[in-house]
Amino acid sequence: MDTYKLILNGKTLKGETTTEAVDAATAEKVFKHYANEHGVHGHWTYDPETKTFTSTE
């Protein structure tokens, strides 16, 4: 398992979190669920070199 990072740049919520996942697709599902639960619906990007997802509203 690898550690993946999420950076949230929402209108009402900003911050970072991490998750352990078997691959990027699994981490993306976890992070999108997390963002949706916190009302963040933004544009998603992923940097495979740093294993970092960013959601920007």
Rank of each mutant, 00 (worst) to 15 (best):
A27H: 00
A25V: 10
Y46Q: 00
L13G: 08
A35N: 02
A27E: 00
D2C: 14
G39P: 00
L13C: 15
K14G: 06
T45W: 06
F53L: 01
I7V: 10
T3S: 06
L6T: 02
T19G: 02
E16Y: 14
Y46F: 07
T26D: 10
K14P: 05
T45Y: 08
T56W: 10
A21E: 03
E49F: 11
Y34L: 07
A25C: 13
T17R: 11
T50H: 06
T3E: 10
K29A: 12
E16R: 06
G15Y: 15
F31Y: 01
T50Q: 06
T26I: 06
T45R: 07
F31C: 01
L8T: 03
L13K: 10
E20F: 12
T50W: 05
G10C: 10
F31D: 01
K51T: 01
E28T: 02
L8M: 10
H43K: 13
F31H: 01
T18I: 07
A21Q: 05
T12A: 10
S55V: 15
W44S: 01
E37S: 12
T26P: 00
E28K: 07
K14F: 10
T45G: 07
T52H: 01
L8D: 01
G10K: 02
W44A: 01
T18F: 13
E28H: 10
L6N: 02
G15S: 14
E20W: 11
L13M: 14
A25Y: 09
T50S: 10
T3I: 13
Y34Q: 02
I7A: 03
H38N: 11
A27G: 01
T52N: 01
A27T: 00
D23Q: 01
K51F: 07
K14A: 08
H38S: 08
D2V: 11
G39D: 07
V40S: 04
V30Y: 15
V30P: 00
G39R: 05
G15E: 13
T12L: 11
K32G: 03
K32V: 07
E57H: 05
T52P: 00
T45P: 00
P48N: 07
N9Q: 09
T12V: 11
K14W: 11
D23Y: 01
T26M: 11
E20P: 05
L8G: 02
F53P: 00
V22T: 12
M1G: 09
S55G: 06
A21H: 01
P48Q: 08
T26K: 05
M1V: 11
E16M: 12
V40G: 03
S55P: 02
H33C: 10
K29E: 10
W44Q: 01
N36E: 15
W44V: 04
D47N: 10
K14Y: 13
E37W: 07
G39F: 06
E20S: 10
H41R: 12
F31K: 01
V22C: 11
E28L: 15
A35K: 01
K51P: 00
A35Q: 03
H43E: 15
D2M: 12
Y46S: 00
T19E: 03
F53Y: 05
D2R: 10
K11V: 14
T54S: 08
N36Y: 14
H41D: 13
K32Q: 11
E37C: 11
V30W: 15
E28M: 12
K51Q: 05
W44H: 01
H43S: 13
T12P: 03
E16S: 10
N36A: 15
T19L: 14
Y4P: 04
V22H: 11
G15D: 11
G15V: 15
T17K: 08
L6Q: 02
A35P: 01
K5T: 14
K5C: 09
Y4G: 04
Y46M: 01
T56K: 06
N9L: 13
A35D: 01
K14H: 10
A21P: 01
P48R: 07
G10N: 04
V40I: 11
L6A: 03
T19I: 15
H33Q: 15
T54A: 06
V22W: 12
D2Q: 14
T45C: 08
I7L: 06
E57C: 05
V40K: 02
G39V: 02
H43D: 15
A25S: 09
T45S: 12
K51H: 07
T45H: 10
T12M: 12
I7T: 03
G42K: 02
K51L: 10
T45E: 12
H38P: 01
M1H: 09
V30A: 09
Y46N: 00
K32T: 06
Y4D: 04
E57S: 05
E20D: 09
Y34W: 12
T3N: 06
A35V: 08
G39S: 05
K14C: 14
T56N: 10
N9V: 14
T19F: 12
S55M: 15
N9D: 11
G39C: 07
T50D: 04
A25E: 12
I7P: 00
E57K: 03
S55N: 14
E57N: 04
E37Q: 12
D47F: 06
T18M: 08
A35H: 02
E57T: 05
G15A: 14
H38D: 02
D47E: 09
T3H: 07
K32I: 09
K14R: 12
T26G: 08
A21I: 02
Y46W: 02
A25F: 09
G42P: 05
T12Y: 14
A27P: 01
T18A: 06
E49C: 11
K11R: 12
D23F: 02
E57M: 05
P48C: 05
E16I: 13
K11T: 12
K32P: 01
T50N: 08
T52K: 02
K32A: 06
T19S: 04
T52F: 02
K29P: 01
T17G: 04
V22A: 13
K29T: 09
K29M: 12
N36F: 14
L6Y: 03
T45M: 08
Y4T: 03
H43M: 13
V30F: 15
D47G: 01
L8Q: 01
A25L: 10
E49I: 11
D47R: 03
W44T: 02
P48K: 08
K11C: 14
D2Y: 13
I7M: 05
T56I: 09
